[in-house]
């Protein structure tokens, strides 16, 4: 069976999916990146083969997310795409006619406006990560509540408590203040969900035409409290699509399929064997000019396969291969 592999390496999670020609998800994985993208990718690829039927042949690979270049050179990707395009492609496939996509991940939150199947506008959080998954994670662990139960707890709230939303420092000190005054935890958590939604709509969604159908994806979409707060704020239904937590990876796999089919090229996928190769990353400071760029590089066995961080082409791999 022909299939396509999609890998989304984000700040908090690394997601891997395998899709067949028709777009059905054969297997999917949601893993914590834990600051070690290389090991997580290797581990994930090994694990996903165990969920796949024997006759699967990977005909194309796409990578996305902030670690897309790293993942791309490791796996041998046919397509390396930004996460906005990947999310939009996946959203349009699962919810035809979708007009608005909310995506909240670990460090990023974005809004994508789609009209007649094409992206017409998007925005991403710029200078502040307030209200993204990392902050929710941090609050859940401070309160000793498993993140998976955070949202359902918010739904049990009967009285809303106002929490400041513009900045996580404000939000946290407000939460502590309310907790010390004796407000029940579910009300505080619900207040936090409302604050994050307010922050998202005022910042990321500022001035955008939010038209239904609206879908909500990314890791944070698992949080029923946030979804409910969105619905209350907008007065419209907000759908959480299937595979909402791995939509970036789904989009990457679909883009790989598009690329392979339109160019009839053969995939550059290196195979699942890369889980057993030796990878090593390192970094150094370039002394070529006062910019002192911090260069990061990755080795596969003894060969450099990728370098990043330079502001000039001095350290480009392509250049090295020409010599």
């Amino acid at each position: 069976m022909r299939a396509y592999l999609g890998v989304d390496v984000g700040s908090v999670s690394t997601n891997i999916v395998v899709q067949n020609e028709g777009g059905d998800v054969l297997a999917s994985l949601y893993l914590r990146t834990k600051g070690r993208p290389v090991e997580t990718i290797q581990h994930g690829l090994k694990e996903i083969t165990q969920h796949l039927p024997d006759n699967v042949e990977i005909c194309g690979v796409g990578t996305t997310g902030s670690g897309r270049y790293l993942a791309g050179v490791m796996i041998g990707a046919d397509v390396i795409k930004n996460e906005i395009t990947a999310h939009a492609v996946a959203a349009s496939f699962f919810v035809p006619g979708v007009q608005t996509v909310f995506e909240i991940g670990g460090q990023d939150s974005k809004i994508i406006l789609i009209r007649n199947g094409i992206v017409v506008d998007f925005a991403m959080n710029t200078v502040c990560a307030a209200g993204t998954g990392s902050f929710l994670d941090q609050q859940a662990s401070r309160l000793g509540i498993p993140i998976a139960e955070f949202g359902s707890l918010a739904l049990r709230s009967t009285n809303s408590v106002r929490i400041a939303g513009r900045c996580t420092v404000f939000a946290e000190s407000d939460m502590i203040h309310k907790q010390q005054m004796g407000h029940p935890l579910q009300d505080i958590i619900n207040g936090l969900c409302e604050a994050l939604v307010r922050n998202y709509l005022n910042n990321v969604g500022k001035g955008k035409d939010i038209l239904p159908p609206v879908i909500f994806q990314g890791g944070v979409a698992a949080n029923a409290g946030i979804k409910a707060a969105f619905e209350r704020a907008l007065g419209m239904e907000v759908k959480v699509p299937p595979h909402h937590d791995v939509m970036g990876a789904v989009g990457a796999a679909m883009l790989a399929r598009e690329e392979i089919q339109s160019t009839s090229k053969k995939t550059t996928f290196k195979g699942f064997i890369i889980s057993d190769l030796n990878y090593r990353t390192g970094s150094f400071e370039c002394n070529g000019c006062p910019n002192a760029c911090e260069i990061a590089e990755i080795y596969e066995e003894e060969k450099v396969i990728g370098r990043w961080g330079a502001r000039c082409p001095r350290w480009d791999i392509i250049q090295e291969e020409q010599h």
């Binding site: 795409k81 930004n82 996460e83 906005i84 395009t85 992206v119 017409v120 506008d121 998007f122």
Partner: peptide, 30 residues
């Protein structure tokens, strides 16, 4: 389509690259 960048002390290009790539995709498809 209009895309805004607020510039400050960040020297990492990744965030800008992601947004620019997406912006280019958007304009190209349109």
């Amino acid at each position: 389509p209009v895309l805004t960048f607020f510039l400050d002390e960040q020297t990492g290009k990744a965030g800008m690259a992601t947004r620019l790539e997406a912006f280019v995709d958007l304009m190209k498809r349109k």
